[in-house]
């Protein structure tokens, strides 16, 4: 069978490209929602952790945040996804895509928390003291002086987290989510031809990774130009 026939069989016949297209849609949707959830939740965790480090306040919350981050970073993503689907939502009927949003968002939060925490801790202690010496409270000092600098410093790292997450979502098939990887695999199981669908899926991932990567690079350059 020639390349052309192979292409026709795997993608054109019976509209099989739709498996890839709808799978890609789910992959991107899960990635974006999970990044947003991850950033919001991760930000909160980082704030709790650094407030404890800097002031000794919020001890119990810090213990929880520390435990959470340790567990999430210390266990496989696939298992976390399975646990959310089969254990936490075992008796509740929730759409799989919502399960994916939650599982990947919770996972991403732990990594984002460590990124933002590192960003806050990298800001010179003198900045905290300058804010305090003018009469700003700890919270005000964080809002006006520390976080704007910290977030600017970690934006590239957050961009990379998004790239990692995009690829991580390929395990969504474990709960029978129709993402890009699973879409390719369905085609393979129908046509008994592995090369075309799998390579095509890989190429699509790579394409989006490169797009995200160039956006991150562009962002980095813009930040350097405005580096005051």
């Amino acid at each position: 069978m020639g390349l052309k026939e192979n292409f026709y069989l795997n993608f054109i016949k019976d509209d099989r490209y739709m498996y890839l297209l709808s799978g890609l849609g789910n992959t991107l949707l899960i990635t974006i929602v999970a990044v947003v959830v991850g950033i919001l939740l991760g930000f909160l965790l980082a704030y709790i952790r650094t407030t404890y480090d800097k002031t000794g306040r919020w001890k119990a919350a810090n213990l929880f945040a520390h435990f959470y981050i340790t567990v999430i970073r210390g266990t496989p993503m696939v298992l976390q996804l399975l646990i959310v689907y089969f254990v936490i939502f075992a008796s509740v009927n929730v759409p799989k895509i919502i399960v994916a949003f939650i599982a990947f968002g919770l996972n991403s939060a732990a990594y984002v928390a460590e990124i933002i925490r590192a960003g806050i801790m990298s800001i010179d202690e003198g900045q905290f003291e300058a804010g305090a010496s003018l009469g700003f409270s700890y919270t005000q000092t964080m809002m006006y002086f520390i976080l704007p600098q910290a977030i600017k410093n970690v934006l590239p790292a957050l961009g990379n987290e998004m790239i990692v997450l995009l690829k991580e979502t390929s395990v969504s098939g474990y709960i029978a989510m129709n993402d890009l990887t699973r879409g390719a695999d369905i085609i393979r199981s129908q046509t008994y031809s592995a090369f075309m669908p799998l390579i095509m899926a890989a190429a699509i991932y790579l394409f989006f990774v490169l797009i995200f990567d160039s956006l991150v690079k562009k962002l980095e350059r813009n930040l350097q130009n405005s580096d005051h």
């Binding site: 300058a130 010496s133 002086f145």
Partner: peptide
Amino acid sequence: MGMVFQQFNLFPH
């Protein structure tokens, strides 16, 4: 009580 530091500690952003 204003304070002036050895390392200036201006807000760079």
